[in-house]
């Protein structure tokens, strides 16, 4: 790779009590790339994602984002960074059930200080991009699983983050809905230039990535660059 990586994990170790979750795990993500973290259940791939996103702090090792050592930042600095530079998509949308879908998408912009009107306008555009304008005024509970995940993708991308972290984003969807979510998600992320770190155990989902890293027993076993 000719350029410096945007996000790097170096020699991460993390234990939960007697259980070792990460053992000398290292991985790199370049700007605009889609990296799939694969591996069996309990291998440490989600833990690695949480460390890369600054949600978990490793016992030792370093996570560097755009030249900044995430592990050395204060909690409030890390939170601010997550809000402004990172986006998140989880297996079950994790949308706020009391808000409508468009309000859910507008929420990160509102938290970042945007006016209600500007935030809603931007959110509507993203829902249209993800082909779910028809659920804008509905609450998440009234949308289907596939629609809910597209709303979650819109919410993750609305702030134009530099990195989107996605943990099994299609894990709860059937093949056709999962495929559409991945197509729209990856195309939109590529258009905005965001890097994507994608945790998945599904090879067909990993096939949307540029390369994969295999996590086994808390270690990163292999990494393949294919662009």
């Amino acid at each position: 790779m000719p350029t410096e990586p945007l996000l790097t994990a170096e020699d991460l170790h993390l234990s939960f009590g007697p259980t070792t979750a990460l053992e000398s795990a290292s991985v790199e993500v370049h700007a605009g790339e889609v990296l799939a973290l694969m591996g069996p259940s309990g291998s440490g791939k989600s833990t690695l994602l949480h460390c890369l996103a600054g949600i978990l702090t490793p016992d030792s090792g370093r996570v560097t984002y755009a030249g900044r050592d995430l592990t050395a930042l204060h909690d409030n600095e890390r939170s601010a960074l997550r809000r402004s530079e990172f986006g998140f998509v989880f297996q079950f949308g994790q949308l706020v059930p009391e808000l409508t879908c468009v309000e859910n998408v507008a929420l990160p912009l509102r938290l970042g200080g945007a006016s209600r009107r500007a935030a809603l306008r931007s959110a509507e555009a993203w829902l249209e991009r993800l082909e779910v304008s028809d659920v804008a005024g509905k609450r998440p509970g009234q949308a289907s699983g596939g629609q809910g995940q597209r709303v979650a993708v819109a919410r993750a991308l609305v702030t134009r983050p530099k990195v989107v972290f996605a943990d099994e984003p299609t894990g709860a969807l059937d093949s056709l809905n999962g495929e559409r979510v991945m197509q729209l998600f990856v195309a939109a992320a590529r258009d905005t230039g965001a890097a994507v770190v994608l945790v998945t155990h599904e090879p067909r989902v990993a096939a949307y990535s540029d390369h994969e890293a295999v996590v086994r027993d808390g270690r990163v076993r292999a990494r393949e660059y294919v662009r």
């Binding site: 096939a207 949307y208 292999a222």
Partner: peptide
């Protein structure tokens, strides 16, 4: 044996990426 599996996974995914692009 994990090296055999990882090498093969990598080759399979390379083809799967091509097929996914072709499909899209």
């Amino acid at each position: 044996a994990n090296d055999v599996l990882d090498t093969q996974r990598s080759a399979h995914l390379r083809l799967m990426r091509d097929l996914t692009r072709r499909k899209n």
